[in-house]
């Protein structure tokens, strides 16, 4: 074996290994695409290995008493605090949590509309460490609508719409999740 081959063979193996791991394609969809509709995107995340959030005692009690929320929002601030609002639209109840502790409970008029359903997803499905790839893997969605937010107040913001969701990223960090269970995105 020549010296040249001794270099080329490991290089070839490295290239094949890299290709098999899809490393050249591991681009961040938030930065790889311009604004607008993106279709037929294949997530690189493994849905079986996603991190998950553990419901607090308060939240478990609410789940046990009231069931899954019809829809919810989760906000992650710079300090990694997690603020959630669970909307029980049909019941007329909104419950807010800060880092898992219930902080408010507001009775509202029930929203009774055939078009507004209940989200398929659960608050514990989402953590602040999620990437857009992770969420696409979780939802089995292959498309999204992307908008860049750059308005003097928010720098490097990305607003993403997926079936049943709107998401907001700042500097590629998930900052806001809102489920929108309308049409086929609700049950």
């Amino acid at each position: 074996m020549t010296k040249k081959l001794q270099i080329l063979i490991p290089l070839f193996l490295l290239i094949m290994l890299t290709l098999s791991c899809n490393l050249p394609y591991r681009t961040n969809p938030l930065t790889a695409y311009s604004d607008g509709l993106i279709q037929n995107y294949v997530s690189r995340s493994d849905p079986n290995n996603l991190p998950s959030y553990t419901l607090s005692v308060d939240q478990t009690m609410v789940m046990n008493e009231t069931g899954f929320p019809d829809r919810f929002t989760i906000q992650f601030d710079r300090n990694a605090d997690r603020t959630e609002i669970w909307y029980y639209d049909q019941m007329g109840l909104n419950i807010s949590f800060k880092n898992g502790s219930e902080i408010s409970r507001v009775e509202t008029n029930p929203v009774l509309s055939e078009a507004l359903g209940s989200t398929y997803y659960l608050p514990q499905n989402f953590t602040k460490n999620y990437s857009l790839d992770d969420i696409l893997a979780l939802t089995s969605e292959t498309g999204f609508y992307l908008e860049t937010i750059q308005n003097g107040i928010i720098e490097n913001g990305k607003l993403v719409f997926i079936k049943g969701f709107s998401l907001f990223f700042i500097d590629n960090q998930l900052r806001y999740v809102e489920t929108i269970p309308i049409g086929n995105a609700g049950q």
Binding site: L37, I38, Q39, N40, E141, T142, G143, F144, Y145, F161, I162, K163, G164, F165, S166, I180, I182, G183, N184, A185
Partner: peptide
């Protein structure tokens, strides 16, 4: 956007 949210981007 409403169609993406309701039925998916595809």
């Amino acid at each position: 956007i409403p169609q993406v949210i309701s039925d998916g981007a595809d």
